[in-house]
Design a protein around this nucleic acid. Structure first.
Length: 502
RNA sequence: GGUCUUGUGGCCGAGUGGCUAGGCAGAGCUCUGCAAAAGCUUCCACAGCGGUUCGAAUCCGCUCGAGACCUCCA
């Protein structure tokens, strides 16, 4: 069964075929490092991390490029256009690059907490000013951009007229047409410089107070809002690559403009498949700066926010995100996160125990063929569901159908021999592959050098002795005191005891 | 105003024509010295109204509600 992905460009699921198999080029829009990442940012990076991992699992050699926007984009809230990064730099009395470095480091820290694999290339906008200028020159030379007062604008009208004839109108990705766009009555800055209100900036002339500025053929300034992604994706993935990803909110205008710029320069539509993840909402509303409802990742991990009733670990959040499909909205609430926390714990403990087992006495024949068949079916569906536009939610549902079976084997409610040795082995490898390699879930409990384990084994021994003497005062004291320290003892069927660190 | 998405049980969330999604919470039971953990069982759905169909949460229409984009935004 082949992989199918939902392509925003065609608005339907398509069979994924690599342009130049086994190589796959994937570009994902990264963060603007003018501030701290929040929960909303976690979604695309975790979603595309799983997509990246799954493509590699399928055998593709993926080049994953995810940019860092550090050049500072425009904020047009007030009258004066101010550079986001330079503005904040003044407030915090930091050099712009110092600020960018700070938030880049914080972002990388969060990404590693989530166990996201680093991309193969993580280019920065400031490191590619030359490439961006070259691209703009090319667009001007081709007649699709014009200069005005030291700024350069993309001529959307002309592009749309010419490329509509080739079946590539402006707005093809987001389903807009220029006529509708004309209706907006919003007042924007520098409109008078533009020939048309749909035109967008490729290069902006920098006002004197701007700290971040570069020399260009059009004077000192800085690159426009969308050109960095076109320049860097072209440089590292070529004029036509397989996958372009990002949040749904970037579809227009960001990705639309990218398509226009790249198409003019490279004479090809840049990406074959456009994948967009949906937003994380909070009480039904998108989490975003402009809504004032963000939970920063540092707050999430520490619990330090009035919205949060407790801290949530990175794996809880990763699991929470994977429990839904990436194209659907996902509503944040403490209740929902707590549910994920508990669910992940149960899943992980079953998985951890099962992965360690060696089933030596099992035979080729299963004693419970119905169960054996059911297990094989559930496991086989992992790939089937992932192939259907990365439906991690359904895979997790199947894993949860396996959890009671695993726990029943553990508690001897089900004999391991109920399943064939082949089934058990297959189940072990597939669970490990999907949970760890593809979903990227990891054990979060602190690892120790065996000393803590030794101490706990001793305490459990003492408690066992006390219990056998019916000295429940002592046995309960050990259990309750440990519970107070966050160590939970669990008596098992065979008279043994295990523990988990909460 | 334009474009588009969406409305599933207490909460989160899969599901596009017929079969129990799943998780968390609730209830009962088993196990246990008591608990916890685990297992088993169970309650609670498909916004409303029409239509298509042998059959609809799933397709169509209308009504009501929610949201996103159109401006930096994952």
């Amino acid at each position: 069964m082949s992989l199918k992905v939902y392509n925003s460009l065609s608005r339907q699921k398509e069979i994924f075929t690599a342009i130049n198999a086994p190589y796959v080029g994937m570009y994902v829009c990264g963060p603007t490092v003018s501030g701290e990442s929040h929960l909303g940012h976690a979604r695309p990076f975790i979603s595309f991390d799983v997509i990246y991992r799954y493509l590699m699992h399928l055998g593709y050699k993926v080049r994953y490029v995810r940019n860092i926007t550090d050049a500072g984009h425009f904020e047009e809230e007030g009258r004066e256009a101010t550079d986001k990064i330079s503005e904040k730099a003044v407030l915090e009395k930091l050099e712009p690059m110092e600020l960018v470095q700070k938030y880049t480091n914080l972002y990388h820290w969060a990404m590693s907490k989530f166990n996201n694999l680093p991309p193969n290339i993580e280019p920065t906008a400031t490191g590619h000013i030359v490439e961006q200028i070259e691209m703009i020159k090319k667009i001007i030379a081709d007649g699709y951009a014009y200069e005005a007062n030291g700024s350069v604008y993309f001529d959307v009208e002309k592009y749309n007229t010419d490329f509509s004839k080739k079946g590539m109108p402006y707005g093809m990705l987001s389903g807009r047409n220029i006529e509708d766009q004309q209706d907006t009555t919003r007042e924007l800055d520098n409109q008078e410089e533009k020939r048309n209100r749909n035109d967008f900036a490729l290069w902006k002339s920098a006002p004197v107070e701007h700290i971040m500025r570069w020399q260009s053929p059009w004077g000192e300034g800085f690159p426009g809002w969308h050109i960095e992604c076109s320049a860097m994706s072209t440089k590292y993935l070529g004029s036509e690559f397989d996958i372009h990803g990002g949040g749904m909110d970037l579809q227009f205008p960001h990705h639309e403009c990218e398509i226009a710029q790249s198409t003019v320069c490279n004479h090809k539509s840049p990406a074959k498949y456009w994948l967009h993840n949906n937003m994380i909402t909070i009480q039904g509303k998108k989490m975003g700066k402009s809504y004032n409802n963000v939970i920063k990742l540092t707050e999430l991990f520490s619990g330090d926010s009035p919205i949060l009733s407790q801290p949530y670990s990175p794996m809880t959040i990763r699991f929470f995100i994977l429990q839904s499909h990436y194209r659907g909205t996902l509503d944040f609430s403490n209740e929902a996160l707590q549910a994920s926390e508990k669910a992940f714990k149960r899943l992980w403990e079953a998985h951890e125990w099962f992965a360690k087992q060696v089933f030596e006495n099992n035979t080729a024949a299963a004693t419970d063929t119905a169960l054996d068949e059911k297990v094989n079916q559930l496991v086989a569906e992992f790939s089937e569901f992932m192939n259907d536009d990365f439906n991690s939610a359904k895979v997790i549902a199947n894993i949860f159908e396996l959890v009671p079976i695993i726990n029943s084997i553990k508690d001897k409610h089900i004999q391991a021999a109920a399943l064939s040795s082949k089934t058990l082995a297959h189940m072990q490898t597939e669970l490990k592959v999907f949970i760890e390699s593809i979903f990227g879930l990891i054990n979060e409990r602190p690892s120790d050098e065996g000393q803590l384990d030794g101490v706990l084994q001793l305490l459990m021994d003492i408690r066992k002795d006390a219990k056998s003497r019916k000295d429940f005062l002592t046995s309960d004291k050990i259990r309750n005191e440990l519970a107070g320290l966050g160590i939970q003892l669990k008596d098992e069927k065979e008279g043994g005891t295990s523990y988990t660190i909460v």
